[in-house]
């Protein structure tokens, strides 16, 4: 396989949820790609469809959710076209994911070392004490003090930060080509957050592991991504290299997002919240889902389809009146 082709291509991915009060169109024609070894950030307010996108890539959507359209091509293979068996072979081996709230994301009644060992046994063809040694080695690699003792510990005995390290150890056990990190540091205290994010970055660099880093916090994404995908209400509204996005955001939502994010040298008064909330995703939605919150809207904005313009190479925006 040529390494110049993207590692992951997401094309027109759409996901719907059937709920008691109607169909929720959580993700609508989302497209982006991730190249080998790069870190792509996905940012957007909560409810904008980041997690759903990630879960759809992994094939782990809630049963109420259904991929209605699109392709997810990983290393040249369409994961959506293949069956559950095929996806299972990729998961944990070449494509891993870590989640928010690590303390509930681990099995509460199984020692954490055993949980790492389960992954090792499954994918690395190691058995007996060698699997155990590998699990202990991974605990050390994610910088958990006293791996021998931590191996025996249960999630409820460990802090959130340590549990997240355990989950990272499970995810990187088989040196995957892509790691999806969905809000990996959200809910942890600030110093732990930085430590976890640095650990992820270190793994990514050492093992040439591509990362899809998801966060609602642009500051987190900005510091650690090569490129950024901005999502709003299930749409990708803008996509650009990190520096360019911060220097010259073209979508009004991105500009608002940047203005509402604390940065060095800014005072509290400089922070401007984004007016309105993420729209209700049920029923008939306008082509541009930012329309109701936008102060630049023109009548043409109500006409489908939502445009997707590549303004400069690698910088696309979904807006009729970009900044």
């Amino acid at each position: 396989m040529s390494e110049t082709a993207p590692l992951l291509t997401v094309e027109d991915l759409s996901v719907e949820f059937r709920t008691r009060d109607g169909i929720v169109r959580a993700v609508d024609r989302v497209s982006f790609d991730v190249r080998w070894g790069e870190t792509v950030g996905v940012v957007g307010e909560s409810g904008s469809g980041k997690s759903v996108t990630a879960l759809a890539i992994m094939g782990l959507l809630h049963p109420a959710g259904r991929v209605t359209d699109g392709r997810v091509i990983f290393r040249g293979v369409d994961l959506l076209a293949g069956g559950e068996g095929q996806r299972r072979r990729y998961r944990g081996r070449e494509l891993s994911m870590i989640f928010q709230s690590p303390r509930t994301a681990l099995n509460p009644i199984r020692p954490v070392g055993k949980q790492i060992e389960d992954v090792v046994r499954r994918h690395a063809d190691l058995a007996g004490t060698r699997a155990r040694d590998r699990a202990l080695g991974l605990l050390a690699e994610v910088q958990i003090p006293d791996p021998g003792r931590s191996y025996q510990a249960y999630p409820f005995e460990l802090s959130g930060g340590v549990c997240q390290r355990v989950m990272i150890a499970m995810a990187v056990a088989c040196v995957p080509a892509l790691l999806i990190a969905d809000e990996p540091a959200t809910g942890l205290d600030v110093t732990t957050q930085a430590a976890i994010l640095d650990l992820l970055k270190q793994f990514a660099q050492e093992r040439r592991m591509a990362t899809l880093l998801i966060s609602h916090d642009l500051a987190v994404i900005g510091e650690r991504s090569d490129r950024i995908v901005v999502m709003h209400a299930g749409h990708v509204v803008e996509m650009a290299r990190t520096a360019e996005l911060f220097r010259a955001p073209r979508h009004p939502y991105t500009a608002r997002l940047i203005a509402s994010t604390p940065r060095p040298g800014a005072t509290l008064g400089d922070l401007k919240p984004i007016p309105g909330g993420v729209p209700d995703l049920r029923g008939n939605l306008p082509p541009c889902r930012y329309r109701a919150r936008c102060d630049r809207a023109i009548p043409a904005c109500d006409e489908p389809p939502l445009p997707r313009v590549e303004l400069t190479p690698g910088h696309t925006v979904a807006c009729r009146v970009p900044l």
Partner: peptide, 29 residues
Amino acid sequence: SSDFMRTARASGLSPATLLYVYALRNALL
């Protein structure tokens, strides 16, 4: 439908491990 089962599935564990080692033991409580 719990979080930890999603993690276990994301790790690609075999269906038997998922069902009996992860899900059933918790459900037995």
